[in-house]
Amino acid sequence: MENHNSKEVQAVYKQLLEAWNNRDARGMADLFTEDGESIGFDGSQSIGRGEIFLHLEPIFINHPTARFISKVKEVYFLSSEVALLRAIAGMIPPNQSDINPKVNTHQTLVVVKKEGNWRIQLFQNTPAQFHGRPELVEQMTDELRELL
């Protein structure tokens, strides 16, 4: 059921990926609660807006980062003020136009409504490598390519 709150939750996720795609560490960090947590693609864990910013800023300064393209698969409300968003995402390397299937990912957000605004409590970025099942990588890549 698509409701108003679902759209608000999806908007926070969209802002998160837009901030990444714009290489905006402060913009990303500010979407989190004060004690929010980010678990990156490589398993690195950052807790709190300040730490999230300090983790992201050197990545954007020192690396030409790939752009995310994503598809929300589900928004599930645990309560009226806590929601879980699940999405799949692919990355388009700099100066390229196609997804790199090696870095497809499942993205999960837990968002909470505080003082009328949805904020990220947890963002987890899990590699979707499907070891030994290349057809699943291909299936996810094809689903994401439809968005290009």
Rank of each mutant, 00 (worst) to 15 (best):
48 G>D: 10
5 N>E: 14
1 M>C: 08
103 V>P: 01
125 N>W: 07
110 V>Q: 04
95 N>R: 03
140 M>S: 05
12 V>W: 00
99 I>L: 10
82 V>R: 00
17 L>M: 08
79 S>E: 04
51 E>I: 08
110 V>N: 01
40 G>I: 07
9 V>W: 01
84 L>H: 06
105 T>L: 06
49 R>Y: 11
109 L>F: 14
108 T>G: 06
142 D>N: 10
58 P>I: 06
41 F>Y: 12
65 T>N: 10
115 E>Y: 05
54 L>D: 14
118 W>D: 01
7 K>N: 07
88 I>S: 05
15 Q>E: 15
120 I>F: 05
96 Q>G: 04
48 G>H: 11
102 K>V: 15
145 R>D: 14
143 E>R: 05
97 S>R: 11
10 Q>K: 08
100 N>F: 14
50 G>P: 04
34 E>L: 13
41 F>D: 13
11 A>C: 05
115 E>C: 01
133 R>Q: 13
103 V>N: 05
81 E>V: 00
69 I>R: 08
48 G>K: 09
16 L>K: 00
134 P>N: 05
43 G>L: 09
68 F>P: 00
23 R>T: 11
107 Q>K: 09
94 P>V: 03
96 Q>F: 04
110 V>L: 07
78 L>Y: 03
126 T>A: 13
47 I>A: 13
63 H>R: 04
6 S>I: 00
5 N>A: 11
126 T>G: 08
26 R>V: 05
42 D>Y: 04
117 N>R: 10
87 A>M: 08
114 K>P: 01
20 W>H: 05
32 F>I: 04
42 D>Q: 06
29 A>I: 01
87 A>E: 10
123 F>L: 12
137 V>G: 04
146 E>I: 13
114 K>V: 15
142 D>S: 08
43 G>T: 09
6 S>C: 02
115 E>S: 02
97 S>W: 05
47 I>R: 12
105 T>G: 07
128 A>S: 12
28 M>H: 03
3 N>D: 15
39 I>C: 05
70 S>E: 11
71 K>T: 08
104 N>V: 15
11 A>P: 01
117 N>T: 14
70 S>M: 09
72 V>N: 00
93 P>M: 09
85 L>N: 04
38 S>I: 03
52 I>E: 10
10 Q>C: 06
94 P>R: 02
42 D>R: 02
134 P>E: 06
39 I>E: 11
10 Q>W: 04
